[in-house]
Amino acid sequence: MALPARAGKPDSVLAKAVELARSVVLEVAEPTDLGDHLGARAEGERVVTHHFSCTRPGYPGWYWSVTLTRAKRGKDLTVNEVVLLPGDEAIVAPDWVPYKERLQPGDLSPGDLLPVEDEDARLVPTYLVGDDPIDTPLDGDARAQVRRVAEDLGLGRVRTLSREGLDMAAERWHAGPGGPEAPLAKSAPDTCWSCGFLVRLNGSLSMSFGVCANGNANDDGRVVTVDHGCGAHSEVKLARKQQPLPLPDHVHDTVVDDELEPL
């Protein structure tokens, strides 16, 4: 087990107090949870921490840590703390991530709500700036006025994508399964640029992205890059060796009622 590095030479009196440190651990743990002494290290002047392996089931890689100290020229030892700590190979819970950051595409169920913050850099007021980002952020009163005017005029969307929002979407789509690096695209006979099933997007993304409208394709209804591709390209042709073999004629036609000639 990799323990913290030494911080200087430990106090000799405290370093020898292994049994005292062991007895302190036994006050909070069962004897079967305490393993071998792993060593001692100096935390500071007359402050030493002893480490013991942990044998408690379910805690591989953890260790007991007992910190002792004493006064200058004092003989009485004082226990600062005793804790159970994870080592480098210990099984620990993953770092906590806020719920909003843990959400992935497809996680929302019917009825779930995911509010967007007012200061979200991906959005800007629609009727003031159109599709262009604004230089100075609006205060609370201005944002409320934008909402009221947009509702009164029937403009529909209060906010629209900012330049940052467009760039983030473009990067995500380009790196996703509809991008040029997808395994499906690398084995495709041609790109979506020349496919008749590609429906181009409007605006600044029109030259780079579109939506697949081929019901037989894996990407049907999804955003794809123009340099993406798949085997369902509108102009793809089968080679002669890839075409199905023609079926032979029927030995006996069972569709009509022609009588068989007697032998």
Rank of each mutant, 00 (worst) to 15 (best):
D131C: 00
G140Q: 12
Y99G: 13
A121K: 14
V47D: 03
V79W: 03
S234T: 08
L155A: 11
R41F: 02
L123D: 06
R148F: 08
A7P: 00
E27D: 11
T78F: 10
P10S: 02
L198I: 10
A71W: 07
P189H: 11
T191Q: 07
R70K: 14
A2H: 04
A185Q: 01
V28S: 08
D76T: 14
P244G: 06
L77Y: 05
L103V: 12
S204T: 15
A40W: 00
Q145Y: 07
N214C: 15
D11A: 01
E261Y: 08
L20S: 03
T32Q: 10
L161E: 00
A7K: 13
E19L: 10
L153R: 11
S234A: 08
E30I: 00
G140K: 13
G8W: 07
E235V: 04
V236S: 09
V92S: 03
V24M: 06
T254G: 10
R147M: 01
S208A: 13
T225L: 06
R222N: 13
K72W: 08
P180N: 04
W173M: 09
T136Q: 10
G74D: 14
D88E: 14
H250P: 08
R157T: 07
E171S: 12
S234V: 02
E19W: 05
A170Y: 02
D253F: 10
L245I: 05
Y59N: 08
V256G: 10
E259A: 04
P262Q: 09
E19S: 14
N214S: 14
V25Q: 01
D257W: 11
M1R: 04
L77P: 05
D107E: 03
S194F: 13
A169H: 02
L38E: 01
D131M: 01
G61A: 05
A15Y: 00
F209K: 00
R73P: 00
G111M: 11
R147I: 02
V236Y: 10
N218Q: 15
Y99N: 14
A93Q: 14
V226A: 08
L247T: 06
C195A: 07
S12A: 14
G39C: 04
V116L: 15
K75V: 11
T69S: 12
R147W: 00
W193T: 14
R46M: 04
H174W: 13
C195S: 09
V18N: 02
L108H: 11
